[in-house]
Simulated scan of single mutants.
Amino acid sequence: MAGSLTPTAHPTARPGGAGRPRTRLPALRWLLLRLGGAVFVVWAVATVTFFAIRLIPGDPAEAIVGGPGSQASDEALAEARADYGLDQPLPVQYLQYLGRLLRGDLGRSYALRDDVTTVIGENVGGTLTLAVASLALASVIALALAVWSARGGRAAGAVTSLLEIVAAAVPHFWLAISLILLFSSTLGWLPPVSVPGPLGLVLPVVTLALPLSGFLGQVMRESLLTALSSPFVLAARARGEGDSGVFWRHALRHAAIPAIGLAGWAFGALISGAVVVETIFARPGIGRSLLSAVQGRDVPLVTGIVISVAIVYMIVTTLTDLADRLVDPRLREEAR
């Protein structure tokens, strides 16, 4: 009788099979949450941009017919409003706008008379190249400062802390002008405006990378110092591993985890900084296009660029989360 009450395994059950659904379910839930969050962010960005651009003084119809200086007649302005649906009530315009977005239609630029998708496609490559190169340079500078601070003693720690604070506080426009005066006007080493080729990238990349390296350096330095006093480092030393091995094999990997987590935020900061940098260095990109579109009340182009940047930002943050899970074993255990 006692044996008949003992539960028996199902004939088709396999060892470890029960663990797989529990492993896949959190991953699927995480993916669905990320997808839902991305949809909400895109909707929120589109809504805020739609209403914010209409708070700017001026008539969007003037941008359609050539700008405020075009001296268009009232009849021409009325015809432009009718053609683009600007004569409809604002809630109706908003619903029509969302409907076009659901179909993937970003509209046509008022000023450029071209599809917004085409305009973004022609300019996004330059901005992404600038952002990726700046993020790579900022990460290298921050890592160098963190290593020097951790291995150089108190004096090195004080110097690196000062350098990080100064770098993080420098405005992009001031840094860009200073670099142009030094390396272009005085030394004549680099062109003052962006030109095709690697030389045209140097000053814009340095301008974006230096302030970001200050923020990343502070995070990496604190994380590295915390790692050097952590139990796993003490355990590695107790096993007989040398200081160099402990530093480069264990502590440095731990210090890189917060920097990876901040990569999404850093990418967003670089895109916003590109508006200033691309304008100063006359470099083609979506940042410069966005500034021109806002000044000219080019509503379709403004909304298209902002939504595209939001989508790219969500993709980058998702990739950084995945990288965190690959690098940090604690996150992998939580996922299981």
Rank of each mutant, 00 (worst) to 15 (best):
P258F: 06
F281L: 02
F173S: 10
V193Y: 08
R237H: 12
N123E: 10
G296R: 02
S292H: 11
V119N: 12
L86C: 10
S185E: 15
G188I: 10
L182F: 11
F232L: 07
E62I: 00
A158R: 00
P204G: 05
E164S: 08
G125K: 01
L208W: 08
I271R: 01
R151K: 06
A111I: 15
W43Y: 13
A72G: 14
S161Q: 12
L216I: 12
L162H: 04
A168M: 03
V92P: 05
Q88V: 09
A323M: 08
L326D: 05
G36F: 09
P300N: 13
Y94S: 08
I64F: 14
S223A: 13
S223Y: 01
L55N: 06
L234M: 06
P171W: 10
R325S: 11
R108G: 05
T129V: 01
A82V: 12
Q295A: 15
G285R: 11
A282K: 04
V246H: 01
V202G: 04
G273P: 09
V309Y: 03
S178T: 14
T279Q: 14
L210D: 07
A72M: 01
A158P: 02
T117Y: 05
T186G: 01
L182D: 04
M220G: 00
I260F: 05
A251D: 09
R330C: 03
E241S: 02
L106S: 09
V140A: 12
E333C: 00
P284S: 15
T320I: 09
A27N: 10
D87T: 09
G242R: 01
L175D: 13
T8Y: 07
D87L: 02
R297P: 03
G69N: 14
V193W: 04
L130F: 12
I311E: 07
V306G: 04
G69L: 14
A323V: 14
I177A: 09
S134L: 04
I305W: 11
A156Q: 05
Q295N: 14
W265I: 10
V246P: 03
A227E: 11
H10V: 00
V302K: 04
Y110W: 15
A72Q: 12
L326R: 00
R14Y: 11
G66E: 03
S289C: 00
